[in-house]
Write a protein that binds this DNA or RNA. Structure first.
Length: 360
RNA sequence: GUGAACGUAGCUCAGUUCGGUAGAGCACUGGAUUGUGGCUCCAGCGGUCGCGGGUUCAAAUCCCGUCGUUCACCCCA
């Protein structure tokens, strides 16, 4: 026998038994997005490399060392998309969506590619749901986007998630704050770990993430971005919170919450699950008011979220879920019957959730 | 990129401590039985023990390397 060939490192096959859950989740998501007025967008799986370099940010790890970049036959540098917001923004500009009624609301379910070393819930190709709303800087829209994700989680019965909320400020107030933070870190340099001393110059906001006890103690006394927002950002943040409360969405203010892309401004948020170990983020997002302009479009604010398949190839399927309630008829389908015509049809609406790898 | 654990039939694993040329259950195939393709019973198929070196009379078992998986760090979905 010839040498066996297996799926590339960090990738996985999605077998017939996984499809019912997958289709069910996508169906639920599509339904929620539709109810909120989002239309589906599909873009190519690869884009010109400079779209991500500019959109995601040259200083991010994604752009610096995690992209699947290749040269096509015409000598152009192309990259398998590592995230969805930049391509969506590109499509917004390319198709003149600024002439559509604003905000333009888009959703997608796409595979993403990152050259990382795989570990729990982290793959080289994974699927993400996302929504993006372009063309409105209203804080009410931020709260709505968070509401969409909360509704989706509620709809599929995802349990034990909590929402963390922060504001990253804008190009007016963040630079001032970062300078202030840098000065603080420089001052306390001696008390920081080796990693943090590097972070202090490269990406000072990340020093808040450090798990080293000494660093945590120092960072307790560090200036907090949330305290140094400009009046406009502070007001924006306050309105977002008020509208979360109006929707009855519980959240935890977390001034240390920093997400991976450079494009975030003002609102950032993340739903986390206590049961996922180190990879606790389930989904999150935020506002990106400068992104469209950065990639060559007209100044256009935007806000969105993405939800990654953290634990299971079939997507959200393996997350812990609440028991099905009596009236919610559209619960998760069970695995198809062993025998039968081979259609893989769900057994029925009342089947209990099945979790775990390969389950359901 | 760093560290640790692991890698034996399609699947879940035993065997590795104290080296002696591979086992179980499930699945699959065939048969018996049975008013179903269900149950039970019988039989069978199936592994160069991830790969490559080394030590040894002899390696799944010890040593080195390599690839892969998992978990953690980094970072992040």
């Amino acid at each position: 026998m010839a040498e066996k060939i297996s799926a590339p490192k960090g990738t996985y096959d999605i077998l017939p038994r996984d499809q019912p859950v997958r289709l069910w989740v996508e169906g639920r998501a599509a339904d929620v997005f539709r109810r909120y007025g989002y239309g589906r967008l599909d873009t190519p799986m690869f884009e010109e490399t400079r779209l991500f370099a500019r959109g995601v940010g040259e200083s991010t790890d994604i752009v610096r060392k995690e992209m699947y970049t290749f040269q096509d036959m015409g000598g152009r540098s192309m990259t398998l998309r590592p995230e969805g917001t930049a391509p969506a923004a590109r499509a917004y500009v390319e198709h003149g969506m600024h002439t559509w009624p604003q905000p333009v609301k888009l959703w997608y379910h796409w595979p993403m590619f990152r050259y990382e070393s795989p570990q729990s819930g982290r793959y080289r190709q994974h699927w993400q749901f996302g929504i993006e709303a372009f063309g409105s800087d209203s804080p009410v829209l931020d709260a709505e986007v968070i509401g969409v994700l909360a509704t989706l989680y509620d709809d599929i019965g995802l349990a034990q998630v909590e929402l963390r909320l922060n504001s990253m400020g804008c190009r007016e107030c963040r630079p001032d704050y970062v300078a202030r933070l840098r000065a603080f870190l420089e001052d306390r340099k001696g008390e920081l770990c080796k990693d943090c001393r590097e972070r202090a110059t490269l990406n000072p906001l990340r020093t808040f993430d450090c798990k080293v006890e000494g660093c945590r103690a120092v960072m307790e006394q560090a200036p907090r971005l949330i305290d140094w927002l400009c009046p406009a950002c502070a007001e924006h943040h306050a309105v977002v919170q008020r509208h979360l409360e109006l929707q009855g969405i519980a959240y935890l203010p977390d001034h240390r919450l920093v997400r991976g892309m450079d494009y975030y401004t003002r609102t950032t948020f993340e739903f986390q699950s206590a049961v996922l170990g180190a990879q606790s983020g389930v989904g999150g997002g935020g506002r990106y008011d400068d992104l469209v302009e950065t990639i060559g479009g007209p100044p256009t604010p935007g806000v969105g979220f993405r939800n990654g398949s953290r634990t299971h190839p079939s997507g959200i399927g393996a997350f812990p879920r609440r028991p099905a309630h009596g009236r919610g008829t559209d619960r998760l389908p069970s695995r198809p019957h062993r025998r039968g015509p081979g259609t893989g049809l769900p057994a029925g609406p009342r089947a209990p959730p099945a979790g775990g790898r390969g389950g359901a």
